[in-house]
Amino acid sequence: MDYYSLKMRASQQVGEGEQKREQHISGAERIVNRDSVEAVCAAMVRRAMTHSKGDPDFINVKIEKIHESDIQILKALPVTRVDVETWQEGLEKAFGFINKTVSDGLLREARNDEYGVLIKDFAQKLPELLRETFPMRGAMLYDIATCERLEPDHERGVRATYMDALHSSEVDSCKNHFNEAIVLATKVANAPGMVAEFCVSDDPNYVTGYVASKELGYVRIMKMKEMGDENGGRIFLFDSRKASAEECIEYLQKKKILVDVGA
C-alpha cells in the first residue's frame, strides 16, 4: 500500500518595516492512505484558520507520496504522568529528570570524573538553553559531550518530520497535543545518538510539557508554564560519542515513522 505524507504550516507577518518578521501560527503533519488525503488536508486548513494565535497570512500544505516499504513502525514510549501545583514546580521536576539523564549518560561511558564539570555546568545552563529556543521554529540540537549547539541553522533549528500514529484515521481539525507529542517523542527517542528530549508547548492555551527518552519513557508534566504564555521550546539532547550530528538529523528529518500507540 502507498501512503501520503501531509504537512501543513501556517504563519503571519508581524512587526513593521525592518522589524517585520514571520511568526509561526500552526503546524501539523500526518501519514495517511490515499482515501484520507482530501479530508485530512481540509482538517489541517481548518485548524490553521481557527488557531488561538490568530489568523494566518500564509498557509502551506504539502502532499508527498511515500511507499510502505520505506516506513518503520515503532512501539510508543511508556507514559508517566506527573501532577504539580505550579508551573515553577513543573519546570523544576523537568529539569531534574533531564539533569539526571544527562549525567547518567555522560558518566556511563567516562573512565573517570572527566565529565563532572560538564554535568554541573549543564544543570546551571539548562534554563537559559530553554529560553534560547523560544523564537526558534524547530528544536535545538545540543551535544552533551561538547556543550555545543549542532543545528546547521540556529534560527530555524532541527525539525522531526514524517511521522504519525499507526492506524490513525482522525480528521478532526482540533489539535490533540498528547497524541501528537507521544508520536514525536517516540521518533526522537529512537534517533541515533539521542539522549533525551525536553519540550514546552508554545500554544498559549496548553501548559503541559514533557521530557522523554528511551530510559525515561514519555514523562508528561501537567503544568510547565502559565496559561496565556506563548513561549515554548524544544531541546534535543544528543551525544556525539555515539553518532554523528548528520546521522541524527538525517533520521529526524527524513525517516518515515509510524508509532503504535496501542488502544
Rank of each mutant, 00 (worst) to 15 (best):
Y3P: 07
K7E: 15
R9F: 14
A10P: 11
S11N: 12
Q12M: 15
Q13L: 15
Q19S: 14
Q19A: 15
K20S: 13
S26Y: 11
A28K: 11
A28V: 08
E29A: 11
E29N: 12
R30E: 15
V32T: 09
S36H: 12
A43H: 00
A43R: 02
A43N: 10
M44G: 04
V45N: 02
R46L: 12
H51G: 06
D57P: 06
D57S: 13
F58V: 13
N60E: 14
H67V: 08
H67P: 03
H67G: 12
E68K: 10
D70K: 10
L74E: 05
A76F: 00
L77S: 00
P78V: 00
V82G: 02
T86L: 09
E92R: 13
K93L: 13
F97K: 09
N99L: 01
T101M: 13
L107M: 13
L107E: 15
R111C: 01
N112Q: 02
G116E: 14
I119A: 12
F122D: 04
P127E: 05
P127F: 04
E128F: 10
L129R: 08
E132A: 11
T133S: 13
F134D: 06
P135D: 11
M136S: 09
M136H: 07
A139T: 03
Y142S: 06
D143C: 08
L150M: 14
L150G: 06
L150W: 02
H154G: 09
G157V: 05
V158K: 03
R159K: 13
A160E: 01
A160D: 00
A160W: 01
T161L: 15
Y162Q: 10
A165H: 03
H167T: 03
H167S: 12
H167R: 12
H167E: 15
D172F: 10
S173K: 09
F178H: 14
N179K: 14
A181W: 06
V183D: 04
A185C: 06
A185Q: 08
A189L: 05
N190T: 00
M194V: 04
A196C: 12
V200S: 02
S201Q: 02
P204V: 10
N205I: 01
N205M: 11
V207Y: 03
Y210L: 06
V211N: 08
V211M: 06
A212M: 02
G217M: 02
V219C: 07
V219K: 08
V219H: 04
R220S: 11
E226S: 15
G232L: 07
R234D: 01
I235N: 05
S240C: 10
S240P: 10
S240N: 08
S244M: 03
S244C: 04
A245Q: 06
E246H: 11
E247V: 02
E247Q: 13
E247H: 04
I249K: 06
K254Y: 14
K255T: 14
I257K: 02
D260H: 01
A263Q: 11
A263I: 10
